Simulated assay, not measured.
Amino acid sequence: MVIGVLALQGAVSEHVALLKRCNVQTKLIKEPADLQGIKGIVLPGGESTTMHKLLVRERLLAPLKNLVQHNFPVFGTCAGLVLLTQPETFNSFDGEVIRNGFGRQRESFESAIEVAGFTDPFPGVFIRAPYLKKVGTDVKVLATLAANRIVAARQKNILVTAFHPELTLDTRFHELFVNQVVPMSKFVAN
């Protein structure tokens, strides 16, 4: 199985490292031709406005949006979550996102998060993190923090976190994506 990692900007190498620890082959996605043969894709944390501009410039926005809207498995972390909810980008995840919801760079923090289905707390790394204010009825909330701010959720083929699991040594969210979200899809990008 090959999982793509959008490699335009952001925490790319960190996602690749964790996916390799999950015994998954990875492929860096920098142009439309790179989408061929992957079974899922990770949209990393980074800066969502910059990532949107690069997606347009590299002509990746339309083919990726088409894949995601046709049930292709995707894991969006931090900026990836923002891109998945924004109407001008992917408009594929049913939720209202609050960008920089926990504050600016200097308010970045780490917190142990109780996650549905995990036996032990997950070490959440929040850097200018967004959160989901509300979600649609078909979204399963996996974790909340501070006054019911949704920080992890799943909707069909899409897994999102407001934090950066790739900046930890904990592979559980990547395993969840690889073992539960990706196998649901028979779809392979071609």
Score class of each variant (00 low, 15 high):
105 Q>Y: 11
102 F>L: 05
56 V>F: 04
69 Q>D: 03
49 T>E: 15
85 T>A: 09
54 L>T: 09
51 M>S: 07
98 I>G: 07
79 A>Q: 00
65 K>H: 15
89 T>F: 01
55 L>S: 10
105 Q>K: 11
66 N>C: 09
94 D>E: 15
65 K>V: 13
71 N>F: 12
76 G>L: 05
62 A>F: 11
99 R>G: 13
58 E>Y: 12
76 G>S: 12
82 V>I: 15
92 S>R: 00
96 E>C: 14
101 G>M: 08
88 E>T: 14
58 E>I: 04
68 V>N: 10
106 R>T: 10
95 G>A: 12
98 I>R: 03
47 E>W: 12
109 F>C: 04
54 L>Q: 09
50 T>M: 05
87 P>W: 04
51 M>F: 02
81 L>N: 00
96 E>A: 13
90 F>K: 01
57 R>A: 13
85 T>Q: 01
70 H>M: 11
99 R>K: 15
47 E>P: 12
68 V>K: 15
63 P>T: 14
54 L>I: 14
92 S>F: 02
76 G>V: 10
50 T>K: 15
46 G>P: 15
66 N>H: 11
74 V>Y: 01
61 L>Q: 14
69 Q>M: 13
96 E>H: 15
75 F>H: 00
107 E>G: 02
90 F>A: 07
92 S>T: 02
82 V>M: 05
48 S>K: 01
51 M>A: 06
52 H>W: 08
78 C>N: 03
97 V>Y: 06
70 H>G: 11
88 E>A: 14
101 G>R: 08
54 L>G: 09
92 S>W: 07
45 G>E: 06
98 I>H: 01
84 L>S: 03
90 F>P: 00
63 P>F: 15
50 T>W: 05
66 N>R: 08
102 F>Y: 04
67 L>S: 08
91 N>C: 01
67 L>T: 11
85 T>L: 02
100 N>D: 00
55 L>R: 00
